[in-house]
Computed example of a mutant assay.
Amino acid sequence: MMQYSDFAVSGRQVSRLGFGAMGFAGWFGEQSEAEHIRALLLALERGVNFIDTARAYGASERIVGEALRQWDGPSPFVATKVEGLAGITQWGTPVPVEHAFPKGQVIASCEASLREMRLERIDLLQLHTYWANWGISGTWMEELQQLKDQGKIGQIGISVPDHRSDMVLPIVMSGLIDSVQTIINIFDPTALEVLVPVCAHNRVAVIARCILDEGGLTGFLTADAEFPEGDFRRDYFDATVPRGAYIDKVDALRRFVPANASSLAALAIKFALHDPHVTTAITSMHVPDFAEANSAAMDEPRLRDEVFQLLMTRHRFIKNFNNVKHFGRLP
């Protein structure tokens, strides 16, 4: 049964399992647009009402908009992200904020998102990347506040670019934002130690992402698995650690299945949502099978606290695959 939580001070309740629409960009291989739409509609039918997309995700916003026009149920909570102009490096290393979000870029990106999804209002607009050296003020923040005052967006959020979640603590405590999106999974649970409690104290929503570690925590990866052209995971699992080491870490989790979860994927989802201060956890459900399987995990009992603690403390495998994702494999 789907669970819901309050989204910061919005007055809205959102599903604790969220629909990540990055897969609509084709970065996990090719699927048809019709299949994407079926997946989103199926997720909505299963009670998912939080959708996360971005200007940078290719056709994702347009596909989300088309699915919403076919949906006749309650309006979901739609979140998207401002497109930065500094190129791929803005997610890998800090760039000057005026390079990523120069004057007018936040407003222009929001207007484009509204047109693409054919919406009058976006529930949550997030900076797609945020670096601590940007501080908490500037044109970018003024434009976000302006859009909120105009009613074009409901809430303001930021997305942590990589695993260093503590870097956003000052802006979380500033009272200027409503949500933070950050990596939380079995292999890297560090955001649960500091960032999540600070967000809870400041009534800032937490959006967990990469909860399946780009699919690795589902156990799909094998020694001879190959990825098609266009799938960013062609290098992702091999460049920073030997693939065999990654597979060994996943295999160590198999002893928790089925006693504590029906599958490795369900175990990862339940782990990411164990802390009640995680508002929603998004995962890519770009095909109907993923939407069905991931939403089914919500029907399972909560992880026992002792199992969560064992996963939290003894199964960490912290590595920064983001450099590979954004810069490619070293020559």
Rank of each mutant, 00 (worst) to 15 (best):
S137R: 13
K152F: 08
R304F: 09
Q145I: 09
M167V: 12
F308A: 07
D188F: 00
E83I: 00
E45S: 13
A21W: 06
V180L: 10
M2T: 12
D235S: 13
A108D: 14
H315G: 04
T283S: 15
G26K: 07
I158D: 00
L114T: 09
A259F: 01
Y236W: 13
R121W: 03
I153F: 04
Q90C: 08
H286G: 00
S32C: 00
S60I: 03
D275W: 05
A291I: 11
D6K: 12
G23N: 06
T240R: 12
M117W: 06
A191S: 15
E193S: 10
S263Q: 07
S137C: 06
H36W: 01
D123N: 14
F271I: 07
V204K: 13
T190E: 11
P258A: 11
A21P: 07
P161K: 06
D235P: 03
E116V: 03
A268R: 07
A108P: 03
S284N: 15
A225L: 12
T240L: 08
P197A: 10
L17C: 03
G20P: 05
A225R: 14
E98V: 11
H277T: 05
A200W: 00
P189M: 05
F271R: 12
I136N: 09
M141D: 03
F77D: 11
F308E: 07
A225T: 15
I211R: 01
V82L: 01
L125N: 01
H326N: 14
A8F: 13
T222H: 12
V307Q: 07
A79D: 08
T283G: 10
I63F: 03
G87I: 10
N322K: 04
T53V: 11
T279K: 02
H163E: 14
N185Y: 04
P161F: 08
P197T: 11
D72C: 04
